[in-house]
Nucleic acid binder design. Structure first.
Length: 261
DNA sequence: ATGCATGAGGC
DNA sequence: CCTCATGCATC
């Protein structure tokens, strides 16, 4: 029902774009939340995100990293999110002071940029899933234009700081309270997974039976199956590993550990 | 980064 | 009720 060939080609394109997207985000020192916010006003959604901590690590040195060529790029691809300690090692190897990295793009700089962010839009969740290709193909194709727009805008603002538009205050449409998240683990989870294996699309009646057997709400079971089915449709990436493509320019890794064997 | 939840749209 | 896009909350 799908067009494997076209889709494969397009997917490669998409992956390439996403890698560049991610690099840019990191280079600018923006967190996923920042991007989500900056993308905003298109939908005018509200969001809040506890990802600020990540922000520090990210912005503290990529700016400099990007100014240092291949060696750093290799390092970047090998490990896009080094810890402060790893930065120390890297700086050492390059004969540089760690603080040179740290202050290439300061929190102040980044904070300044952040202060000019537009209204909110996509959440950190969405940006994260987008970068990890952890969404349906269709969904990512839809999101791509927005991400692209962000890339274009940050491109301009890099050379012209004052061009960043200002910010209509983001509305906070608090409304109905959300149900407390149910925790499904252990035997319960096993039981559901097993049931799912037997039949991924249980009828209302079957759901009721499962719910009763497990002693949990029917709605919880129903939603669990829905989410599970949806999960199966995501593309997802073996993200614990390096990027999928290995342009020859980045073919040589600098990982000291892997060189030994 | 990801699990459970919500809501829109479709049948 | 389902699928889908999304995100709050939490790991």
């Amino acid at each position: 029902m799908q067009s494997p060939i076209d889709e494969t080609t397009e997917l490669e394109e998409l992956e390439e774009f996403i890698i560049n997207f991610r690099m840019r985000r990191l280079k600018l020192g923006f967190s996923q939340t920042d991007v989500g916010s900056a993308l905003g006003k298109l939908y005018g959604k509200a969001l809040s995100q506890p990802t600020i901590s990540r922000f520090e690590v990210l912005n503290l040195s990529y700016y400099k990293m990007c100014n240092l060529q291949s060696l750093l790029q290799k390092a970047f691809l090998h490990n896009p999110r080094p810890t402060s300690e790893e930065f120390g090692h890297l700086a050492e190897r390059l004969g540089m002071e760690k603080k040179v990295f740290e202050f290439g793009f300061t929190q102040t700089d980044a904070g300044l940029a952040m202060g000019k962010l537009y209204a909110n839009d996509f959440s950190q969740t969405t940006v994260s899933r987008f970068e990890a290709l952890n969404l349906s193909y269709k969904n990512m194709c839809k999101l791509k234009p927005f991400m692209q727009k962000w890339v274009a805008e940050t491109d301009i603002s890099l050379n012209n700081p004052s061009s960043l538009s200002n910010p209509p205050t983001p509305p906070k449409p608090i409304g109905t309270r959300r149900k407390k998240r149910t925790c499904i683990e252990g035997a319960l989870l096993v039981a559901l997974v097993t049931a799912f294996g037997r039949n991924p699309k249980p009828t209302t009646t079957e759901v009721a039976i499962i719910a009763e057997d497990l002693g949990i709400g029917r709605e919880v079971v129903r939603v669990w199956f829905c989410n599970r089915r949806q999960k199966e449709k995501r593309i997802s990436l073996p993200s614990t590993h390096p990027p999928m493509h290995q342009p020859e320019m980045f073919a040589n890794r600098i990982d000291p550990y892997s060189a030994n064997h």
